[in-house]
Design a protein around this nucleic acid. Sequence first.
RNA 1: GGGCGCUUAGCUCAGCUGGCUAGAGCGCUUGCUUUACACGCAAGAAGUCGGGGGUUCAAGUCCCUCAGCGCCCACCA
Length: 852
Amino acid sequence: MKLAKIYDPTLYETDIYALWEQSGAFSPSGKGRPFSLVVPPPNANGNLHMGHALSFSVQDIAARYHRLKGERVVFVPGADHAGFETQVVFERALEKQGKSRFDYSREVLYNQIFDFVDRNRDNFQTQIRKLGASVDWSRYTFSLDPKVVKQAYATFKQMWQEGLIYRGERLVNFCTFHGTAFADIEVDYQEEQGHLWKIRYTLSDGSGELVVATTRPETMLGDTAVAVNPKDERYKAMIGKTLKLPLTQREIPIIADDYVDVNFGTGAVKITPAHDPNDYQIAERHDLPFVTVIGFDGKLVHSVPKAFRGLSVLEGREAVLKQLEQEGLLVGDEELTHNVGHCYKCGTVIEPLLKEQWFIDIKPLADNALQAIREGKIEFLPQAKQTQLERYLETIRDWNISRQIVWGIPIPAFQNEEDPDDWIYDERVDQEVITLNNKHYRRDADVFDTWFSSSSWPYTTLGYPDESDFKEFYPLSLMESGFDLLYPWISRMIMLGLYVTGGIPFSKVYLHGMITDAQGRKMSKSIGNVTDPMETIASFGSDALRIGVISGQTPGNNQPYVEAKVIGGRNFINKLWNIARFTEGLVENFDQTEAKAVSAADHWILLQYAKTKTSYVEHMDNYRFSEAFETIYHFLWNDLADWYIEASKIEPNPTLLAELLRGSLPLVHPFAPFVSETIWQTLELRQDSLLINQPFIDLPMGNEKDALQFEKIKNLVSEVRSLLTATKAKKVKLYYHNEPVVASFATIINQLGGTIGVEEAEAGRGIALTGSGFSCWLDIDQESIDRYAAHLEDLISVEQKRTKQLQERLNNPNYVKLAPKELVDQTSSQLTEAEQTLEKLLEEKIRFAPRR
RNA sequence: GGGCGCUUAGCUCAGCUGGCUAGAGCGCUUGCUUUACACGCAAGAAGUCGGGGGUUCAAGUCCCUCAGCGCCCACCA
């Protein structure tokens, strides 16, 4: 035996992967149509988690399936520098050494992080190999590779020239701990218990006062107005007057704006344009000045009154409140639940701060994307995500692409040292100052938002615009990603793809849900509920993990990680292995491939194979991987192993069995690549070939008539087994009368049914079989017959119910009139069948009514 | 406040364009040393498809409504 008694994945997986990789099987080949997908690049610095396992599984199943279909598959791997994410991890490492990023120059820090990431590269690539991802390593792209940077610059330049990029001082979401701004969608909002304080402001002319309500009293130092609703009778008379801003000597106007809600708070809102997005908008409308009170370090700035200078936001709040109280201006304090934005990494409260940044005027891009999506150029799985994306694009706001970190692509823009408004585009970002026409320009200290460059992923990885990959494989056939990236990544790939290449970046998007723990909670280190896919692979094998995450999986829905499903996968692999072992024991020569169906079982299994393959292909083509797997799972386990192999023990057809194995392995391969290839190689199912790039195999078609005969025998066997179990009868003979089919299958029936003989009889002996359409009897003993009577009652009531249902359906004239004819015909033949069975059962009942 | 989803067996979930006795895996019950497999074999039990209404010959599937759960976006200072 070449196949070991037990399949131990750890003994084979590494070698099998190396075999594929070295043979060049991962590169596109042949003359089929192109099929392309590009891996959403995981963070180069991190370990792969369960979500990656799912994502790679979905992609690899698609890739392998299309490869087996003979298509030219390109499956491009990559890694993301994940700017901010990685810098944070690195800073933590520095912290452990008692250092911080401020101890190094930008260049030194960048190089250190580069080395740090580079050191982790092997680990990261090993993990992808362990998952069995059939990616083409020769096309591996890192998101800081020159071609990616080059493309980011080209796009930035083009947008700048076309006026789609502007530099402006806006309120940005700023983390004062990490010292960088974020895009709107990167801010993590949490509901919190806070206070609504009420503060009295008096009118400058002494004619009265009003009370404002605020959750952030410290920002009052930057107030430049108080707004009221123009319809609010309480304040109508005050509009246009000025107030004396407490704690400072400034005078600020009372303005009217519809934004103010009459029913909230006091109906009077202090306006701090430099520290609140809504106030910012009001200030724009009313041409109010901007007064900054909080700095980028999170402390109150020098221009605030001396008492508050240098205090943190919270200290400042306390101090301001205390002062107000002393002056008798604090007139209320209510509890309030409100949403507060936090840095998604460190939890620091995000401060809206005024900062000059580069923005993309997103509306024109979003409109193009919307049009393409509405025209149905991109198919979404699940479909509902399309609607969600459309809503997002309809309301999208300009995109801040500047980040104040070092780990990223430097923005190729320089500012005239003498004229702050003079910005030029230049790619000499390795120099801090450049000279042009005798003018000195200083490099922008910022780098691009990682998503800006990674949004070009579909075409930069393929070598836009000139390389043959781009020409052949763009747009991608499939983009697979977690649905959490719908806005930050998918939407931007569509927008930038259309903008840069003029075409959609991919024609299909498959969005998987999040993998949670068994209780449906997010996996997180702090809860300690994380399952490491590498550990699962070590325990159960890569194939088992893949089956575990894919079974029952549908796009768009979260799914818990359930180890039982992985174990189920492992058990299936064991089954497959043993099917192969049984086959190996029977087959002398795997080279012989001219299989012929001889027995009814042969015809039956071939027909089952053909049906399985048809439905498998349909599911696969529609990305219903879980269902496709179920199809092949049940074919192998229930049809092939439970029936055909059992029948083979009596009437073997080794050549056909070998062909069935050969034909099944490609169908299993996308789901269990390692074990299927291991079997293929070990048994040398085809000389000098790899399963990974075998085309799907057509087996001869089974004859329906013979197949049906086996189906009947199968039913007979099932009925025999069922009756034997119900009656607990032992050592029973099956008799038949004038049934040539039963006679010819006597050995199989006897063996599979578990009887001690199948013999011809002149007349009925024992209890009659009622379900399988043969004149057969089980010769059971008297004691068992009493149990049979009870069992009969169950069977009768089932059959009566069924008969009644069918009758009712046929008694409905509208059904007969309106339903398709095939359906009606089917119903009536079912009724006939059910009635016959019922009749037989009732006859049996009369014969074996329990004696009272 | 707006949007999107989910609710099907004890558990985790499938169920594609409405159609035949609603499925799977795990778990459960009963019985098996059947020489490929106990990671197994055989036989079973278990669901008023969240509630209500409607459309239809026919609804888990389509429409309306209510309830519970979840996610996303916006946000009342």
